[in-house]
């Protein structure tokens, strides 16, 4: 027990994101309502986004916008140290991931609307019942 505590303190960000991710995964597996499954998927995606952004963090560094870079030529003289700015790459990747999550969420909600229009329910067990009823009627 004495060994594991400093380990958690040094990496508490990962532990928090994994807990969040597992909440989302549980919602996707165990919830009966399709809308709740979608919310679980969004929680999962948010946890991954937080995970990536936290990888890019550096102690004592600032946001990845070069100071004095606006002026043009003056920026060339000053030497830019990589340790002064956090890693921009995870931010870029997650910017696109956020867009993908919005797109998937929009399409998934459109599908939910269509399912509701046809079967009048979004509960998974009722859906299964309605579908099997339809098959037997045919």
């Amino acid at each position: 027990m004495g060994d594991i505590l400093p380990l958690i303190v040094a990496k508490y960000n990962f532990w928090l994101y994994i807990v969040l991710m597992m909440i989302g995964l549980y919602a996707m597996i165990a919830k009966n309502n399709l809308m709740k499954k979608l919310v679980g998927m969004n929680i999962f995606q948010t946890a991954i986004i937080l995970f990536y952004v936290s990888i890019g963090y550096k102690h004592g560094a600032t946001i990845p916008i070069i100071q004095g870079g606006h002026g043009g030529h003056s920026a060339h003289d000053a030497v830019i140290h990589a340790a002064d700015y956090i890693n921009p790459l995870p931010h870029v990747l997650m910017l696109t991931a956020i867009v993908v999550s919005v797109a998937t969420f929009g399409v998934a909600m459109a599908l939910c609307v269509r399912i509701y229009q046809r079967y009048q329910t979004l509960e998974e067990d009722e859906l299964r019942m309605r579908v099997s009823e339809m098959i037997t009627h045919e």
């Binding site: 990888i55 890019g56 100071q67 870079g69 920026a75 990589a82 921009p88």
Partner: peptide, 25 residues
């Protein structure tokens, strides 16, 4: 950390001279 050493350093140190855009993202 490995994520913050190889490519990230190149981006941070060379973007302003290559593109003149201060916002690295």
């Amino acid at each position: 950390s490995p994520a913050s050493t190889h490519l990230s350093d190149y981006y941070i140190e060379h973007i302003v001279e290559e593109t003149q855009v201060p916002n690295l993202v």
